[in-house]
Amino acid sequence: MAFLNALPGAVAQGLIWGLVAIGIYISYKILDIADLSVDGSFATGACICVVAIANGVPVWLSIILSFLAGAVAGAVTGLLHTALGVPSILAGILTQLSLYSINLQLIMGGRSNFPFSSIPFYTGNTDFTPDSLLLRMSDKVASIIVPLLFVAAVIVLLWLFFYTEIGLTIKSTGDNPAMSKAQGVNINLNKVIGLAISNGIVALAGALLAQYQGFADVTMGTGAIVIGLAAIFIGLSVSLKIKPNFVVSLIGVVGGSIVYYVIFTVVMLLGLHTNYLKLLSAMIVAIFLAVPYLKKEYFSKRKHQRVSVAVESESEGGDADA
């Protein structure tokens, strides 16, 4: 019973984090960049959303602003990497760290936590009522329908985008940079565009989560990359077996995110403290990265043994394994 009560919340959070996973899919799977700036841009999305609404900006517009702020953050990471030669992992970390200060001081005005309920108290904006938010934890139906609509819209838009001329070359940029350059593709520009879209979507998810949980917090993005990767690995482990195409992969990634939150809910109900969430996420990612590696190691050793037998009868067979 407790599980059934907790299920809608798990699905709602799974859908919202599914958007994060989609964003990370673009950087990690398509561009082949482990972009750590998402930890910052997720919180940026949440902070911008609350502050914009507090200042009387309509809810829908505040979500667009969140997306744009995330896109700018992603573009900064991209430029640090491509124009200034900073290694991509470090570029992401630098952006993430900068965003912590920006979120805390520039956006939130020194507050580390900003609940929607305190808006009248801080700004004197008494027009605001929590009913105007797109989703709230207390409204179980809206908290599932709204993220679901956003997920569907994002998947459709990305699906269309990656079939355009620009979209195809962004895919090829990650898949084979040498080939892309030889075919006249500006891979630096494409990395910037891809990271901007990725972080924009992640910030959008931040805005939705802030509304869902009723507040923005400058630390709420910590470990977003790991949760997103966990969702990607869980999702792709199933969806790639069904059909390895783009849309099925994205749906799988969102499914992976929901499964992740359902598992998490069960583990919590079994008595694990919520503070262990991040440890659990890290373990899931480590396991999903380690298993294929160990399999390959084990498999290639056996293959090597077989080849070495063959080499005895054929003096130049050494190349066969290479």
Partner: peptide
């Protein structure tokens, strides 16, 4: 060639070598 992309997609990218990539069907 880009291994994770279709043959047609690879060719389409090559067919546009030297043109500006636009926001139209690939």
């Amino acid at each position: 060639t880009a291994p994770d992309m279709e043959i047609a997609e690879n060719l389409a990218i090559a067919a546009r070598r030297g043109t500006k990539r636009r926001f139209v069907w690939g």
